[in-house]
């Protein structure tokens, strides 16, 4: 970034800061990114505290009344409350359903990202560190996989694995590990030639120690950026699969399923059943993308455009 922001300390002072403090101060320099971060924090908080802040428990059938079904936003509920975002076909409060749906969408997104990150890191580092035939094999698989669109691979996997939360996560991991493997390998290949790696080898440290204590930490910045983008991609993909009726089970509706649920009522003008879960999904994806965009600039000046 060429523009000088007064809030950022001078180079001499910056060196004394811890890397985390420097990253944090660079991050807040962009108000749009801060907005994204705040929005994301609110969304995560809504998901985590869903049972506390939701007006009703959308899974508890005893709290639902079919008489309340398909009420427009702002309608009064019989027990004195208000359905701020309306109700769905089973008389479920949409606001509560969205909070609980967010929970599931975020959980699936986060779980698949963490697992894919672990698999991708291991494969990528193995490829870069060992080289030779193993590297060729791993990278060939990555290349082939990345030449097909994610949605297609996801559908194949779901067709093969069947449906269910665990299987959707498995499918997302299978799709996403390739992105991490490719990123970490290219980062590791650059780092491998640096002097500190040579020094570590001269000290006769064990390969595991070299890879995990020396190589890995230096490959992390680009990985964090890719991981942030991929969380958003995972959430969007899960929503798409659920919308197509091939994702999560209907008993615990994620945002995608809520949207699919409202599809049939859309044509009769009852827009809110699909519209608001979609807004929640959109806000989640946009906020993550905004944070990722800024992280990219902060963590790696070479990548910034």
């Amino acid at each position: 970034m060429s523009t000088v922001v007064p809030a950022v300390p001078e180079p001499a002072a910056r060196a004394a800061q811890s890397p985390f403090a420097r990253i944090a101060s660079d991050f807040v320099a962009n108000p749009v990114a801060v907005f994204g971060l705040v929005l994301l924090a609110l969304i995560v908080a809504a998901a985590v505290f869903a049972p506390l802040i939701s007006p009703q428990n959308p899974y508890d059938l005893a709290q639902l009344d079919v008489m309340d079904s398909k009420l427009p936003p702002g309608s009064k509920s019989p027990n004195g409350g208000t359905f701020w975002l309306g109700t769905d076909d089973q008389g479920r409060d949409m606001l509560s359903a969205i909070f609980y749906g967010l929970r599931i969408s975020l959980m699936v997104g986060a779980a698949s990202t963490v697992l894919a990150l672990l698999v991708g890191l291991t494969m990528g580092l193995t490829a870069a560190y060992l080289g030779g035939r193993i590297e060729t094999l791993i990278m060939r698989i990555v290349d082939i996989q990345l030449s097909f669109p994610a949605i297609l691979i996801a559908l194949i996997l779901i067709a093969v694995l069947g449906q269910g939360t665990g299987k959707v996560i498995a499918a997302l991991v299978t799709i996403q590990w390739a992105y991490y493997a490719r990123t970490v390998r290219s980062a590791a290949l650059v780092e491998k030639r640096k002097e500190y790696m040579e020094a570590a080898r001269c000290l006769a440290l064990s390969p595991a120690r070299i890879v995990f204590r020396h190589l890995l930490p230096n490959c992390l910045p680009p990985m964090i950026v890719v991981a942030t983008v991929q969380v958003a991609a995972a959430i969007a993909l899960e929503a798409t699969l659920s919308f197509l009726g091939l994702g999560l089970p209907i008993t615990e509706p994620s945002l995608g399923l809520l949207i699919a649920n409202g599809y049939q009522y859309l044509l009769s003008g009852k827009y809110w059943i699909s519209f608001f879960p979609g807004v929640a999904l959109l806000a989640t994806i946009v906020s993550i993308n905004l944070v990722a965009d800024q992280l990219r600039d902060v963590l790696n000046p070479r990548l910034s455009r």
């Binding site: 958003a232 969007a236 929503a239 798409t240 919308f243 197509l244 995608g256 949207i259 409202g262 599809y263 859309l266 044509l267 699909s274 519209f275 979609g278 999904l281 959109l282 994806i285 946009v286 993308n289």
Partner: peptide
């Protein structure tokens, strides 16, 4: 950022 299927619904 917009999920394709949701945009489709909104277009409808």
């Amino acid at each position: 950022s917009l999920p394709t299927f949701w945009v489709g619904l909104m277009l409808i």
